[in-house]
């Protein structure tokens, strides 16, 4: 009996093994390796010595850690509501009954397929002072200001958020658009017979029907925004004076520039827990939706 089971199960090995090996080495193992590294003084070259909770202690009292975690959180706070509302608005436009709707959808989505390197340098060349497209445009319509879009404390955040919205809102828009197209036509027909106005239809049919996908979009957006790194690194370099530096950039600098992989791994763990909690909430709410 047992031998038969083995004979049966052995057939599955060639199917499962390739995925399993790669998955364990590159997805599962790093979680444990990271935990190990966080208890060591560990350089780019080698493991140096066991230091217990020293890295964790350091993290708790490291103002740069808290500053960059706050910057990342600020980015989440700024981008999540704007992204979700803009995505909803764009989805409504792309769902208009018009010949233009395919063009709208294409236009709104197009930036999100571009590389972060490309969109960052497009932003830099548009926003840089004296010669950038935006400032020269302002000059040509008679506004003689010279805003430093990427170096001013507040404007740099505005620039990063606007560029990120432009770049990645298309993805959320598509999620809303799919949900809009799934709302049964009969709901609108029935309400029309009852004499509902357009606004009432929107308020009492469209919005409630979009709440489940809205929840998914919000959580996916929080998750994505917590991982922010490349566009900030490339556009402001984390400046001015660390004012926009996100957590992942700080982790990178500690690991690769300051040659302290142990401490970098410790801070990665902090990020890991934040993201893990958010994804558990997300899976929960998706399950709720399905049941």
């Amino acid at each position: 009996m047992n031998k038969n089971l083995w004979m049966r199960d052995i057939k599955v090995i060639p199917f499962l093994l390739p995925f399993l090996v790669v998955y364990i080495i590159f997805t599962i193992l790093p979680v444990f390796k990271g935990l190990e590294m966080s208890f060591y003084d560990w350089s780019l070259i080698r493991k140096i010595e066991f230091v217990g909770f020293e890295n964790y202690q350091k993290m708790l009292f490291d103002p740069h850690f808290w500053r960059s975690l706050w910057n990342t959180t600020l980015f989440v706070i700024l981008t999540t509501p704007t992204m979700v509302l803009l995505a909803l608005g764009l989805a409504l436009l792309a769902n208009l009954n018009s010949k233009l709707k395919t063009f709208f959808r294409t236009a709104f989505f197009l930036p999100s397929i571009l590389s972060v390197a490309v969109i960052s340098f497009l932003a830099i060349f548009m926003l840089q002072p004296y010669t950038g497209l935006l400032n020269t445009g302002l000059h040509s319509i008679g506004i003689e200001a010279e805003p430093f879009w990427m170096a001013d404390k507040i404007l740099s955040w505005v620039s990063i958020v606007v560029v990120t919205l432009w770049w990645s809102v298309g993805f959320n828009m598509v999620l809303f658009l799919a949900a809009l197209q799934e709302i049964p036509e009969s709901l609108y027909e029935a309400s029309e017979i009852d004499g509902a106005t357009r606004w009432e239809q929107f308020r009492y049919i469209t919005i409630p029907q979009l709440i489940p996908i809205g929840r998914v979009v919000i959580l996916l957006q929080i998750l994505a925004s917590y991982k922010v790194f490349a566009q900030i690194l490339l556009i402001t370099g984390g400046g001015p004076a660390g004012g926009t530096r996100p957590l992942i950039q700080y982790i990178y600098e500690v690991g690769f520039t300051q040659n302290n992989m142990g401490y970098a791994a410790t801070m990665s763990y902090a990020l890991f827990y934040i993201l893990l909690i958010i994804s558990i909430i997300q899976l929960r709410s998706q399950r709720l939706k399905e049941s």
Binding site: L16, L20, Y23, I25, F26, T27, I28, L29, P30, V31, K33, G34, E36, M37, W42, L223, K227, F229, I248, I251, G255, M261, A264, A265, S268, Y269, L271, F272, L275, L276, S279, I280, L283
Partner: peptide, 23 residues
């Protein structure tokens, strides 16, 4: 095994990039 695969959905690559480099 299937649940073990699902776990991977919750592991963000960005947060394990330092140990991934080491591996």
């Amino acid at each position: 095994i299937y649940i073990f695969f699902l776990v991977g959905l919750m592991i963000p690559g960005e947060a394990t990039i330092i140990p991934l480099y080491e591996i």
